[in-house]
Amino acid sequence: MRISRELRATYAFVGRQFNLVKRYFNWEVVFLFYSVINALTIGLIGVTQGPEAVLYLTVGALLWGFLSVLFHEVGESVSWERWEGTIEYTFMAPIRRLTHLGWMCIFAIIYGTIRTGIILAVVAFFFGISLKGANLGSGLLVLVCSSLAFIGLGLMAAVLPLLSPERGSQATHILQGLILLVSGVYYEIDVLPAWLKPLSVISPATYTLKAARAALLEGMSITALGPEMVRLIVIGIILIPLGLFIFNLGERYAMRSGKLARNG
């Protein structure tokens, strides 16, 4: 009974999010258009350096697009509800926080995968990229494994607007920017200054990009990608419970300080 209750609640969140996508459909089209153009312009930078560079850059743009959506949907879920004014209603619903946040994450993965698929199709058509040599199965698995780690990070980021309604959302963007800088999205991490390199080692996006490029550019199999996948899964296994724990602490703090109710 308890499981069915939690499952119904999960449907509430996923259904709500898809309804919101429907209602904001024009904006969805605009954001998708912008993401496509962004991926194309980044790919075009590589045209003068050869087809490999185009692929290298577009894979970076596609993956960063996917991870950004994931991070944004989870990390901004609290800010979004605060803006809508529904945060108290959702937080006083009789469901576990794991259910609430877990299914926000599932929605983010489904939504991010659909968006990335559309962008990939347009980019492949535009550059005449053949995906014959790519191992799409491995690529998809990389997305799934890296999702775990990014969900953990997203949960930690989602707590920031609970701690500080005004500055939490700003901090989330700074965190996202840092990940973009250190993870080798558009360049090898070797080019980073030595003092930034330790951050690239702890960023899950570094391993995601490495594994995704190996799968899509070199056609590497899941077995060959084993060590990277294991690393991503381990990071996910650590970050998800840690993220939930931190979120619970943040929620208690917000309930103590009255910050759930504040707008801004």
Partner: peptide, 27 residues
């Protein structure tokens, strides 16, 4: 609880908001 300010997803219809609430409460 009914609060003084309308706490709804503004773009969603009343029906969609009610269905969301119902599912949260296992209906």
């Amino acid at each position: 609880r009914v609060s003084v300010e309308a706490a709804f997803f503004k773009k969603l219809s009343s029906y969609e908001n009610l269905i969301y609430a119902a599912r949260l409460y296992d209906l």
